[in-house]
Write a protein that binds this DNA or RNA. Structure first.
Lengths: 154, 154
DNA sequence: CCGAATTTTCAGTAATTCCTGAAGCCCTCA
DNA sequence: TGAGGGCTTCAGGAATTACTGAAAATTCGG
C-alpha cells in the first residue's frame, strides 16, 4: 500500500546518509525529494512546500544538484515554472564525483614526495599513498564503464 | 631538498581535501600530521605542538582515527607516552569505509521500493538506484582484493 | 512591451559544529 | 606506594555553516 508517511521518513533517512557521506544537508534533502516524488518532474515551489523550507534554500540546492549533473531541467511544456527531475544516471554520476577527490589525493601525495628525501619515512608513506590512488584512478573508470555496459539502452 | 615549510603546506592542503570529502577537520589535520612526519611514530603531544591545538582536540581526533583503523598504537617500548603511526593499509581502509555508505543507500532504496506502487514513477527510480548500489556492493570488494594482491609481497 | 509570477541573490540571524581549558583519572617509574 | 606526567572528558564559548526573508532580476503570457 502507498504510505506517504513512510516514504517521507525513508526520504529523510536517505538524506541523512547522504549528508554523512559529505553532501550538504539541503542538497541531500532536495535530492531525496526528487527521488521519492510520484511525478515525472517537479517545480521548486513543490520542493519547498514538501520540505517546508524557503524558496531561497531550494534555489541554492537545485543549482548545486544541476551543477553536478544529478538533476536536469526539463524542456518546459509551455509552463511558466521550471520543471526538474533526476537524471537516469544520477547515481553513477554521484559516485564518479569521487574521482575529483581521488585526483586531489594523488596530487597531494606527489607534492609530498617531491619535497621529501628518499630516506625519510614520510617518503615511503607518501609513495604508498600515491600508488593506491593511482590504482583507483585507473580502476574506477573501468568500473563505471562496466556498469554502463550492463545497462546499455539503445 | 627538505623543505619543511612546503611539507606543512602540502599537509594542510591534503587535510582540506579530506575535509571536503566528508572527514572532520581535526581528524583530517591529524591524519595529515601522521602522514608527513619524518619519524616512524609520534605522540599526541607532538601532534598537538605541530598543529598548534589543544591536547583535548588531539585526543578526540586520535580516538576517531583509531576507531576506523587508519592509525594504530605501537607496542609501547616502555615509554610513558603512547606512540601511534599510520597503518600500512590506511588508504584502502579509508576507501572501504564507503561500503557502509553504499549499504545504507541500498537499504534506503529497498525501503522506498517496499512502500511504493509499481506504477509510481518513484518505483522505477528507486529500482535503478537499488541496482546501481547492488552493483557497487558486488564490485568494490573485488577491487580492494585486486589491490591487495598487487601489493602483498613479504 | 507591460505585468504578474517565479527565481535568484544577499544580508542578517539562527543553529550547529568545533575547539579550548581545566579538572580528574590512570599509568609509569623511582 | 607516592609523585609526576600524560591522557580523557566535558561544559562553555567561539567560529563556521546553513536557513530565512525580502528585494531585485528574470521570464513568459497577454
Amino acid at each position: 500500500m502507498e504510505d506517504r508517511h513512510e516514504q517521507w521518513q525513508a526520504a529523510e533517512r536517505l538524506a541523512l546518509t547522504l549528508t554523512e557521506g559529505g553532501m550538504q544537508r539541503m542538497h541531500a534533502r532536495t535530492l531525496a525529494a526528487f527521488l521519492f516524488t510520484d511525478a515525472e518532474a517537479i517545480t521548486m515551489g513543490e520542493i519547498g512546500e514538501r520540505l517546508g523550507v524557503s524558496a531561497g534554500s531550494v534555489s541554492g540546492a537545485v543549482k548545486g544538484l544541476l551543477s553536478v549533473g544529478l538533476i536536469e531541467r526539463l524542456p518546459a511544456p509551455g509552463s511558466r515554472r521550471e520543471h526538474y527531475h533526476m537524471r537516469d544516471d544520477a547515481w553513477p554520476r554521484l559516485f564518479s564525483t569521487q574521482n575529483t577527490v581521488v585526483h586531489a589525493m594523488l596530487q597531494a601525495a606527489e607534492t609530498g614526495i617531491a619535497t621529501t628525501e628518499p630516506d625519510d619515512p614520510a617518503h615511503l608513506r607518501l609513495a604508498r599513498m600515491r600508488d593506491f590512488y593511482q590504482f583507483l584512478l585507473r580502476e574506477l573508470p573501468d568500473l563505471l564503464r562496466r556498469w554502463e555496459q550492463e545497462h546499455s539502452r539503445p
